[in-house]
C-alpha cells in the first residue's frame, strides 16, 4: 500500500487536502497534486525526466481526477490521456473520477473510457470505500 503512486488532479485546494489526508490515513505516501488538467498532462508527458526526478514515485498508478476545472477540465484530460496512454507507459495506470457532480450523464460519460475504473462523488467518500477502491485497482494490476 505504501508504494502506490497517486496523482490528484483538482483545482480545489481544499478537496486535494481532504483526499490527501484520507489517502495518507490509508497509508499511501507517494501523492502528487496538480491543480488543473493542463499541468497534470504536462507532468505526465514529461515522462523521462520525471521518471528520473522522482525515482519510485513516477509514473502514477491511480489518478484521482476532478471534472469541473477552469482551463482543461476532467473530460478534456481524459481525451488527451487516451491519446498519450499508449505512447508512454501508462498501460497499468487507471483513473478514478473524483467529482462533486452527481449527474448520471457525467458518470456514464466518464465510465465509457476503458481506463476509468471508478466514479467517486466528493463528500460521499469514506476511508473504507477509498480503501476498497485502491485494493481493487492493485488487484487488477
Amino acid at each position: 500500500m505504501k508504494n502506490i503512486n497517486v496523482l490528484i488532479v483538482d483545482d480545489s485546494e481544499l478537496d486535494r487536502y481532504i483526499l490527501r489526508r484520507q489517502l495518507t490515513a490509508l497509508g499511501v505516501q507517494n501523492i502528487e497534486e496538480k491543480d488543473d488538467g493542463s499541468s497534470a498532462l504536462a507532468y505526465l508527458k514529461d515522462y523521462d525526466s520525471n521518471y528520473q526526478l522522482f525515482p519510485g514515485k513516477f509514473p502514477p498508478i491511480i489518478i484521482f481526477l476532478d471534472i469541473n476545472m477552469p482551463k482543461v477540465n476532467g473530460f478534456d484530460f481524459l481525451d488527451e490521456f487516451a491519446k498519450i496512454r499508449k505512447q508512454f507507459d501508462f498501460g497499468s495506470c487507471v483513473v478514478a473520477m473524483y467529482s462533486s457532480s452527481e449527474r448520471s450523464e457525467d458518470k456514464e460519460r466518464a465510465l465509457k473510457y476503458e481506463f476509468v475504473s471508478r466514479y467517486l462523488v466528493k463528500g460521499e467518500i469514506t476511508e473504507l470505500c477509498l480503501d476498497e477502491t485502491i485494493q481493487a485497482i492493485i488487484k487488477s494490476n
Binding site: I18, S100, G123
Partner: peptide, 21 residues
Amino acid sequence: AYRASHDLKSPLTSSKLLTQF
C-alpha cells in the same frame, strides 16, 4: 437549481470532513 445546490453542498460536505479531521 443544480449549480446552486451543488455550490451550497460542497462547502458543507468539506466542512463535515474537516470537522472529522
